[in-house]
Design a protein around this nucleic acid. Sequence first.
DNA 1: CATGAATGAGCTTTCATTCAT
DNA 2: CATGAATGAAAGCTCATTCAT
Lengths: 180, 180, 180, 180
Amino acid sequence: MKAALVLFAERGYDGTTVPMIAESAKVGAGTIYRYFANKESLVNGLFQHCVQVFSDTLKYEAIHSTPDIREQFHYIFQRLVKFADNNVNALLFIESHNSAYYLDDRSKQVFDELLGTFRQVLENGKKVGVIKEFNTDALIAIVYGSFVLLFKLIKSGVLTETPDLLEGVEESCWNAIRIL
Amino acid sequence: MKAALVLFAERGYDGTTVPMIAESAKVGAGTIYRYFANKESLVNGLFQHCVQVFSDTLKYEAIHSTPDIREQFHYIFQRLVKFADNNVNALLFIESHNSAYYLDDRSKQVFDELLGTFRQVLENGKKVGVIKEFNTDALIAIVYGSFVLLFKLIKSGVLTETPDLLEGVEESCWNAIRIL
Amino acid sequence: MKAALVLFAERGYDGTTVPMIAESAKVGAGTIYRYFANKESLVNGLFQHCVQVFSDTLKYEAIHSTPDIREQFHYIFQRLVKFADNNVNALLFIESHNSAYYLDDRSKQVFDELLGTFRQVLENGKKVGVIKEFNTDALIAIVYGSFVLLFKLIKSGVLTETPDLLEGVEESCWNAIRIL
Amino acid sequence: MKAALVLFAERGYDGTTVPMIAESAKVGAGTIYRYFANKESLVNGLFQHCVQVFSDTLKYEAIHSTPDIREQFHYIFQRLVKFADNNVNALLFIESHNSAYYLDDRSKQVFDELLGTFRQVLENGKKVGVIKEFNTDALIAIVYGSFVLLFKLIKSGVLTETPDLLEGVEESCWNAIRIL
DNA sequence: CATGAATGAGCTTTCATTCAT
DNA sequence: CATGAATGAAAGCTCATTCAT
């Protein structure tokens, strides 16, 4: 799955062949079929796993350790960064595959749940009157879209990940969605 | 090329077959090869064309009709929206294919020039002291990342494009990059 | 037909495309189909034409102007050389295509007639007691096989055609088939 | 390779399709590509193999067991016959493909080495004063050309291979190149 | 009468998948 | 349980042939 993730993230599902994955994983091509019914099962399994890890990373109790929404946002952003740091490929794989024709219902559902988590955080912020009253999905687009492209650029070497960079982006995202 | 664009945007390069394109374009599969040496030539030609149209759309003289940077940002955002409205598929195609393994040097160069245009606008804003001093590519990530995901969600039906929505996102993006 | 001959001789029937012939002949591909029903008609027509020219070249009355069989052989060899000189490609085309799967009955018949001419000359020689009593087709293999390979080597540049060379080969061929 | 040899010998390279070879070899078409990168690799590999077998067949120590050049010629001719008997298709395949556009450098080189062996034998005969002083390649054309056409006719059924036939052709070839 | 754009059958080649080892 | 050789369906691509111009 690790090998598949890297390849899917870099070359896409259809651009990755099973023998490629096998070679990269240093197993025989047939071995893959002992764990997954077919290539589609593999992407779906992998997708669901990645989304799960993403969800788990976000579910950080400490978020609620403070009543300050800005600080909560900081915690969440920190978790996003943590996930991206440890799983850039997973992040990009999820982003580039989340509406693919080969995803099954379970994958779509799991992804929707992840979106739900995002939405919840923002809606809560709105309720408390710190985040501006605006279409939640649009707010997600702003924060998550920025975040994904940021790490795409970091991965490709255009940008270098530094505390200053991350802090700056976090501040920008916050300014984008907060009430001014 | 229109047929190829839609399919590439929706299924990716490797997920799109030449017969699919041919059928969608209502021509014989062989006909495609009278205009493109091979499938790779087709994506590259298409990519370059889309980037060109994008560049052209951005080159809007009116931008400089006002000294007000906020208003300039508005014009630019408006142009982005115009391009997205007329060419959603082109926008998403560019975003999902811009670092693909099958792009040739010309494609990469053309895309870099587009990035250059983006950078220029932001750097200018910084010079005038309205946009915050921050890594230009990071600022691009924020605005362009937001913008792309916004239209991805609009295209998928999650969001509905309305003047209010666009205005809100524009305001958010502006708040993200301006000096507060 | 000239263009087709060169290409067929050099690349074979299946290795030559109709557009290749058209380009080499500086006509449109469609034009060829105004003169030949299809590619197969073209090879067959060409083959028959070449064999005809070959036959005509051999039918040299002067052959019978002398009762001396060695001299007659000289005349025939001279005619072979004449044909090869003026139509190397035709010679090689005939040799490499004479038992091809796409030749029609007429082509086979015409080629058999050419063989008949060869046989007649040799049988006559045997009757007069100058050429050795041996399977006629074997004698043809010896003289014609030598001759064809000779010109193949000349065409490819391995050998250079000179009066001495031709005289020597003629003498050798004569020694091969005459009664010693 | 056996299946390919027969088909290439009978229909030529371009007239033979990979599925034809696969069917004849009773394997799947894809299987061929596990052993050869492509069709061109296949012809080249086959060509080199055939030439190798031919070379090996000629390298018969017994040749030097007698100082008599006529007897040596007999041995060589015998080896040619042996090769032709066991590999008619290889003989004809080599002859009809030896200057084809799809042969790579290695193939050309290997074939040149075979020619070198032929040349050596004849040059040696000249040195000893038994074979006539004449362009070596022309002598090859005579003997080898005769030989190839002989077996082409045998294969096609025009001639029947008998000891008498072979003996007669050998004698004729000898007479063609010896000093009279 | 000449043309060459268009076509689709069929070629070369790839690759997800199977299965004997 | 792991493997990778074998497979054939389907991909990318070519080219003989047609036909509107």
